[in-house]
Computed example of a mutant assay.
Amino acid sequence: MPDAVMLFAAGLGTRMRELTRDRPKPLIEVAGRALLNHALDRVWEAGVGRIVINLHYRAAQIRAHLEGQRVLFSDESDALLETGGGLARALPLLAADPVFTLNTDAVWTGANPLAQLREAWQGAQGPGAEGLLLLVPRAAAIGHSGPGDFDLDAQGRLTRGTAYVYTGAQILRTPRFAARAPGAFSINPIWDEMIGAGTLFGAVHDGGWCDVGRPESIALAESMLQSAGDA
């Protein structure tokens, strides 16, 4: 079972416009707490033993914000590596297979996303699964302006589609990442390889989710949290 998590915190946050001029996106506050802390709350609630956070833009601010916390940092100051390359570089620090990954630009209500993934991983997917993504129906994806990402079949396998939106929480086996040459690459081609092999699965989140990728999404996230009694 996964007991290590990669938190993605290296991005430039350009969609946040002026809000990220002098700080990294993970330190933008929603309901009085940094987005990074919202993510870490979920990690600690789920009892994950090892936490790795990648850093690039204004990395010193994130290091200072988390001083004294039980976390490890994967340094990408030399170059942004995207999601796949960032995970591949962090594998020695994660020291585990499979691993959780969690984006730091969203907030959640309801079931703990990592605990929900862990339970689903133990269930119907079986030993052949290489990936398990947590999804929300397109109509329930607060703050998300794009199309859906995936369709889900009766066995829980994923294909590219529009019915569900990926929430930024997943479990992944790591060999495909370890086999890649070092450098920047997206997780998307790895997902496509898994889809082709029939080893990428999905689970639907039991609760609310808000993508906090743009300034106008902050109020949406705070409203969602308040409605759920979490703010």
Rank of each mutant, 00 (worst) to 15 (best):
E130R: 11
Q226D: 12
L94Q: 09
T109V: 13
A181H: 13
A59L: 04
V52M: 08
A96S: 15
G47L: 14
I53L: 11
R180A: 13
G156P: 02
V5M: 07
V71S: 10
R118P: 02
I62A: 03
A179M: 11
L7P: 00
L36I: 04
V43N: 05
A111C: 05
G32S: 06
W44F: 15
H56T: 10
G183M: 13
L27T: 03
G11P: 00
R176S: 05
R157C: 04
T104Y: 02
M224R: 08
V48A: 08
A34E: 01
L225W: 10
T83E: 09
R15V: 10
I28G: 00
P98D: 06
L200W: 08
A124R: 04
I218H: 00
W191L: 15
F73I: 15
G168R: 07
G207A: 07
C210E: 01
F73W: 11
G198Q: 05
W209N: 01
P215K: 09
Q170W: 06
Q155C: 02
C210T: 09
Q170T: 06
L94K: 10
I62W: 01
M224C: 08
L220I: 06
L12F: 13
G47P: 11
A106M: 14
I53N: 06
R180E: 14
N103V: 05
G85N: 11
V204D: 00
P92I: 10
V30Y: 06
S77P: 08
P92C: 10
G213W: 09
G11N: 15
L133G: 01
A231Y: 14
A115N: 03
P182Y: 09
A228I: 13
A96E: 14
G161A: 13
E82N: 10
A179V: 12
D105G: 07
D75P: 15
R15K: 15
R214K: 15
P182A: 13
G32D: 05
E130C: 05
C210Y: 05
G128M: 01
